[in-house]
């Protein structure tokens, strides 16, 4: 049964991938391609859909892992302050004129910012030779507030142009997607996915409590550190690909739990697949409904995601466990 569900989800991802490739401001018929269509398809839509899939996968999987290690159903990859840190780093990069060096500089700055924040959160969450969920969460929230405050301060005192570019990192913008960044993003996200899927069993044990995991023979602190590192890698890579896109990391793992249960061996890969599909669809909606203008996909995911978030909040069994 679960195999059928898995195949079903894979085909859903393939279908959404191709649907978002051929639908858009104008529908492209794959069987009657003219020069312009081909160019749009290859140079603009394909990299964009790939980036959306990669980011969605990274965020979905990160959310599932983080909700596990923090033992908190409302955790989302950005709760660790990674988004605000990378947005701040990218904005500082823009202000300092870093983008002069190459196309990579700003995504690279964002990635470095995200990594520094991850390390900071890790340091604050570290006590007595290991990472502690409660400490991680609070450190993330604290740093997140701090970085957003600094970011807002910069935006409120700087010129319009920098503000516009900074907003890109806050709301997320997939229109900057292009081929050159994809291999790196792919590599990082794949590595992160590999780590967390291979540690899924340990995550199952960790969710039941540190003592229990220890009695099963897992090194609690080592596993938690590895899982945290996988989240940090995936989230940082996704932020540097297209900015912050909210709610995927929060709602997708919950949907998958309803569909396929809470076993992390299934939950993590399925959350990745569904996250990828969801972001593809959200981005497709964002670039289609107001055409020729575009709505950042972070806004679309939040519009779909927030009501669901509130619905989850209303459900008793979510917060009382």
């Amino acid at each position: 049964m679960s195999k059928i569900k898995f195949l079903f989800l894979i085909s859903v991802l393939v279908i959404t991938f191709s649907v978002s490739l051929f639908l858009g401001p104008r529908i492209i018929n794959p069987f009657e391609l003219n020069g312009t269509d081909k160019e749009i398809l290859l140079m603009i839509r394909l990299p964009r859909v790939i980036v959306a899939t990669l980011m969605g996968m990274a965020l979905g999987a990160s959310g599932a892992v983080l909700q596990g290690i923090l033992r908190n159903p409302l955790a989302d990859p950005y709760i660790l302050g990674i988004s605000s840190g990378s947005a701040l780093a990218a904005t500082l990069g823009l202000l300092s004129g870093m983008y002069m060096f190459s196309n990579f500089s700003i995504p690279l700055t964002a990635f470095i910012g995200a990594s520094i924040v991850s390390i900071l959160v890790g340091l604050f969450g570290w006590k007595k030779g290991g990472l502690w969920p409660g400490r991680l969460l609070l450190a993330g929230i604290g740093l997140s507030f701090l970085f957003y405050a600094i970011l807002m301060l910069i935006i409120s005192i700087s010129a319009n142009e920098v503000t516009r570019r900074a907003l890109l990192w806050i709301f997320g913008d997939l229109s900057i997607a292009e081929w050159s960044l994809i291999p790196y993003g792919f590599l990082f996200i794949l590595a992160g996915l590999y780590i967390c899927i291979s540690r899924a069993k340990a995550l199952n044990a960790l969710m039941l409590g540190d003592d229990f995991a220890h009695s099963l023979g897992f090194s609690v602190h080592r596993e938690r550190l590895l899982l945290f590192a996988s989240v940090a890698i995936m989230t940082s890579a996704s932020v540097s690909l297209g900015g912050t896109i909210g709610f995927i990391g929060l709602i997708i793992p919950h949907i998958v739990r309803f569909l396929a249960g809470a076993d992390n061996k299934k939950l993590i890969p399925l959350s990745a697949l569904c996250g990828g599909a969801f972001l593809c669809i959200a981005d497709m909606i964002g670039r289609t409904i107001m055409s020729p203008a575009e709505i950042p996909s972070g806004i679309i995911t939040a519009i779909i995601g927030s009501p669901y978030f509130l619905y989850l909040l209303r459900k008793k069994d979510v917060l009382s466990t």
Partner: peptide, 19 residues
């Protein structure tokens, strides 16, 4: 070329430029 936009300063679609 952006006459179809409903907004004064839209965030514009790159593929629409090509079209």
């Amino acid at each position: 070329a952006a006459y179809r936009s409903k907004v004064s300063y839209p965030k514009y679609s790159i593929e629409e430029i090509i079209r």
